[in-house]
Write a protein that binds this DNA or RNA. Structure first.
Lengths: 197, 197, 197, 197
DNA sequence: AATGAATGAGGGTTCATTCAT
DNA sequence: AATGAATGAACCCTCATTCAT
């Protein structure tokens, strides 16, 4: 059972030595590159590619899941920020629509984000916190939508997260990413409206 | 480059010797069991579990993808049959609704089917043929739906397949499978209607 | 937990292909050489030294303990044979004395035997069987010794085995092996006599 | 060649800064805990367990052997003291008997002591000195025993040390530690008497 | 057809050790 | 003195794949 470390949720390191920070960065960059390729995330290959000893990789990311979450962290933060902006209702467009669009676009641009969004539990406290903020923003958007009669009642924030995962999958399950995306978001958006009486 | 065999699509074997047939069966059964577990499909482990030499596994399934498609074949055939029944319009319910429901239920019951449904190209001619039949049935259902004004114009059969993949993912991306399924199908169904004018 | 294979006791392979047999031999020979050196038995190093793939080593000896027992098997059989000869009482010398002498000499000549003799449970059925035969021979020797009043009553076959392990250790715990051996056996032999009344 | 430092015997540090002393203690405590478990003494794991940097461990114990001797030092001192008391012949019991009993009991209670007692040469001057005192006490006990005709002539202090190591091994080589111990000591004691004429 | 032995690449992980801070 | 980051060798083990039998 090799992946039984870090059972306790991991906090993001603070105050890293500058060289350590640089290494962390190189590893993350290499990981992002590998994630684009078809292979999984092999710790050894990662270290090689990053020009760093294996041990260093393990020090920074004791578990593949920790690494994944670190990879997706930036994207997740971006998504959360966008979600909160949308939920704050700057009035422009339908908050939920903005949210779905942003969520899908960002997943397609960042596979790590898609992975993190779909995983059952977070390994890092940081990730958990961001996901919780995301849930809050989604709930707010839904509440507003429900109040204005534009969102059905039987759907909650977690449903939206799951539908976002599904959207990304639908787009990935075929050729072409640009044109289907808009349409699929449209389908889900319309599907989220309250059923006609 | 380990997976470079069988670039040419593979036809399903016919007229197997009875013992060969039995072996094929044992391997498929073992593979189904392994697919339920969390591990991948390791040829060696598979052979061990099936009580068969590795060579035998390779003879029957030269590629992992071939094996996967063989695994999903039964489920795929079932889905195709259901789709054609629905498209034939026995009149009962909305064909598209039946289709989505069946497609989701069967994917959840059969991970191999979900995989096959999402893969870009088929390795076996058989699979390709079934997928083509599925496409036909979906197209028929859509045509009928469009004709009766219950399905939007900008969605084609492949979109439905992809949305089916997305549905399965949405269900898998969270806890609980029963109650969300129906709701998510509902969302997509409603989303597929023509937009209100 | 990497050593959880071969939980079921392993029987010695029969009817090996000739090349497999040759490999088995090469590995055992290399292992014997490594055991003389100060390092442990590293499977990788072993394979390298034997001129054989790692996989081959694992196929033949799924566990380090299995390997050790295979290494010690010959020595153990020799000891068992000697013990049975001694127990059969060819009349020459005191059976127990012969046994201790043989047991010590063979352990010193064969570190694997010393290891096997001291391990709490056998991994291979074969080893277990030989150990059982040894126990029988020891018991017989003790019984005869007790009957003739030359062995104390409160010592059984397992005690003798353990004392044999102790003897080997005593010899190994210092410089010089030849002269102490005889003396130490002597000490134990005299110590095994019934206490003076 | 990792263990080529500290070829020159090491003196025990004196006048440690209080915090250094505390660290030394934590490391030793952690080492004692690890030695009870089945794993070896890994410097890294040790540091982790002790809540101390690896560097600190190395500063205090440049070599694993030094660490081991430090671990066993207390036990060794205890044994030496007991041996000298016994050799001083407080008259009570047979000195040699007391010695063997104490030596075995202490080895069983303290694996590090057993290790130190069996190692060919000491890494620390301190250990060497204690071992020398032990030798002296054993020699005294033997001399007295020989003088009173209760110990055979052909056994010296180092033999007794080695037999002590053997005793510990005999006890460890099987199930049960309490009841065999006394018997095995008995066997060796009786074996050390001068042979009947 | 089937078998299963062999191979060796390669991923996972730990650890001893050094050294900049 | 202490720290802990970094390194990389080395081990463990599993697999995909080939091929002689």
């Amino acid at each position: 059972m090799p992946e039984d470390r870090a059972a306790a949720p991991l906090a993001r390191p603070t105050h890293l030595r500058p060289d350590a920070l640089a290494n962390r960065w190189r590893v993350l960059a290499a990981a992002a590159r590998q994630l684009d390729g078809p292979e999984g995330l092999a710790m050894n290959a990662l270290a090689r590619e990053a020009g760093v000893g294996v041990g260093t990789v393990y020090r920074h990311f004791p578990t593949r899941q920790v690494l994944l979450e670190a990879l997706g962290a930036e994207g997740l933060e971006g998504l959360v920020a966008a979600a909160e902006r949308a939920a704050d209702g700057d009035g422009g467009e339908d908050a939920l629509a903005q949210l779905l669009r942003a969520g899908l676009r960002r997943q397609l641009a960042d596979p790590a984000l898609a992975t993190v969004l779909a995983e059952p539990t977070a390994a890092c406290t940081d990730t958990a916190a961001q996901l919780e903020r995301l849930r809050g923003a989604l709930e707010a958007a839904l509440a507003h939508g429900r109040a204005t009669g534009r969102v059905r009642e039987d759907v909650d924030a977690d449903d939206v997260r799951r539908l976002l995962c599904g959207l990304a999958r639908a787009v990935d399950a075929g050729p072409g990413r640009a044109s289907p995306s808009a349409r699929y978001v449209d389908v889900v958006l319309q599907g989220l409206r309250p059923p006609a009486p």
